[in-house]
C-alpha cells in the first residue's frame, strides 16, 4: 500500500459540516413553530422525505453508489432550507414540486453536489414563487394575531389541502411594500402583525437564525465575510433610504434586518459555499452585493421579499467575482488581480 503525504487528516468531514448546518437551523425552526404553528415542521418532514427520494432516484439514474452519496446529508440540508422558506401549511404537491426542482433540476442536472451553479433551495423557491404566487404568499398570522392550527390541522393542510380552511395574512414586508399613504408610525398602529422592531414572530425567528449562524461561525463551518458583508450592505442601504418614517419610507435598518428571510439568508443561504465566491475578498463583494440587491428588490421590485432573487443573481456573478478577486499569493507583487 503506497500512500503519499499528507498521511494525517483533520477531524472535519462533509457530513459533519452538513449536520452542523442542520443543527444550527433548530433554534429558528423552534421559534417559527412557536409563532406560526406546526406548519414549518410538517413542511420539513414531508420535504425531507421527498428530497431523499429524489436524491436516491437521481443517484440511481446517474449510476452512483446510493449509500455513499446519501450519507453526505446534502439533500436533507437543501430540503430543510427550502421548507423553512416555504409558507407554513403549504400543500404537499407544492413542497414536492419545489424539492424535486431543487434536487433534480438545480442540483443533479448540473452534476450533483459541488457542481451546481445555483443554490438549489433558492432555485426551487423561485420556481415555486413564479409558478404558484398565490400559495407562495399565503402566510399564516402569527401567534397572538390569529388562531394557530394544531398539529392535526397542520398535517391536514399539507396532505388534504382542499379540506383545510386556514387564515392567511399579509406579511409585514408586504404591508410595508403596499403602503402608499400612511406614515410608518401609523402603519405600525393599524396593522396587528407589526411587533416591537419588525413583524410579530418574524423578529424572533430572525434572531434565532442569527444565533444559529453565530454558532456555525464559532464552529468555523464558514467565515464571517459573506454574511457580515450582506447584513452591512442591507443596513447601509436601509439607513441611506430611510427617510425617518414617511409614507414613502422603505423601512428602518432594524426592520429590514429582522424581517423576512434576512438572517436566514445571511447565515444559511449566502454562506452556501458551492454557489458563492471563493476568496475572502470575493465573499465580501458577493455578500455586499446580495445585501444591496435584497434592499432594492424589497423596496422597488415586484416581490415583497428578495433574498432568493438576490442570491440567484449573485450566483451568476460568482465566477466573475472569483476571476477579479484572486488573492495575492506568497512572494508575488500586489496587483489588480485577474490579469
Amino acid at each position: 500500500m503506497r500512500i503519499t503525504s499528507p498521511h494525517a487528516h483533520g477531524p472535519m468531514s462533509t457530513p459533519r459540516v452538513m449536520l452542523n448546518v442542520l443543527l444550527a437551523t433548530v433554534p429558528g425552526i423552534v421559534v417559527m413553530t412557536h409563532f406560526f404553528g406546526f406548519g414549518t415542521l410538517v413542511n420539513i418532514l414531508w420535504g425531507g422525505l421527498v428530497a431523499v427520494a429524489c436524491e436516491a432516484l437521481a443517484l440511481k439514474l446517474r449510476g452512483r453508489p446510493l449509500g455513499f452519496y446519501l450519507k453526505d446529508y446534502s439533500a436533507l440540508v437543501t430540503a430543510t432550507l427550502l421548507c423553512i422558506a416555504l409558507p407554513p401549511y403549504s400543500p404537499w404537491w407544492l413542497i414536492a414540486v419545489g424539492i424535486a426542482s431543487a434536487i433534480l433540476l438545480a442540483k443533479h442536472l448540473y452534476g450533483g453536489l459541488g457542481y451546481n451553479p445555483f443554490n438549489p433551495a433558492m432555485a426551487g423557491y423561485v420556481i415555486l414563487l413564479i409558478s404558484f404566487p398565490v400559495q407562495m404568499t399565503a402566510w399564516a398570522p402569527p401567534r397572538g394575531v390569529g388562531e394557530l392550527p394544531g398539529l392535526l390541522e397542520a398535517l391536514q393542510a399539507c396532505f388534504t389541502p382542499a379540506a383545510f380552511d386556514g387564515v392567511t395574512m399579509a406579511t409585514p414586508l408586504d404591508v410595508m411594500k403596499q403602503n402608499n399613504s400612511l406614515l410608518v408610525k401609523d402603519l405600525w398602529q393599524q396593522n396587528p402583525q407589526f411587533g416591537r422592531w419588525a413583524g410579530v414572530g418574524w423578529e424572533w425567528a430572525n434572531l434565532a437564525f442569527l444565533a444559529g449562524g453565530a454558532w456555525l461561525l464559532y464552529k468555523r463551518i464558514f467565515t464571517w465575510h459573506a454574511p457580515v458583508a450582506m447584513l452591512a450592505a442591507l443596513t447601509l442601504m436601509a439607513a441611506l433610504f430611510n427617510d425617518g418614517g414617511s409614507s414613502a419610507s422603505g423601512g428602518s435598518p432594524l426592520f429590514h434586518l429582522l424581517s423576512g428571510a434576512t438572517m436566514f439568508g445571511a447565515f444559511f443561504i449566502v454562506t452556501d459555499p458551492v454557489t458563492s465566491a471563493v476568496s475572502v475578498r470575493g465573499r465580501l463583494v458577493y455578500g455586499a452585493m446580495i445585501g444591496a440587491l435584497v434592499y432594492i428588490i424589497r423596496v422597488r421590485g415586484n416581490y415583497p421579499d428578495a433574498v432568493a432573487f438576490a442570491v440567484l443573481i449573485m450566483n451568476f456573478a460568482a465566477p466573475f467575482i472569483d476571476y477579479y478577486t484572486q488573492p495575492r499569493t506568497y512572494g508575488h507583487q500586489r496587483s489588480g488581480g485577474g490579469e
Partner: peptide
C-alpha cells in the same frame, strides 16, 4: 493512528483549504 483515507467526496468549495493555505492559494479552484 493514521488511518487509510476514505474515498473522496465531492468538493463543496467550502474554502477551508484556502483558509489553511500558508501561501494564499485557492486550492479549491
Amino acid at each position: 493512528e493514521l488511518p487509510t483515507p476514505p474515498p473522496a467526496q465531492a468538493c463543496i468549495r467550502c474554502g477551508m483549504c484556502a483558509e489553511a493555505c500558508p501561501v494564499t492559494l485557492l486550492p479549491q479552484q
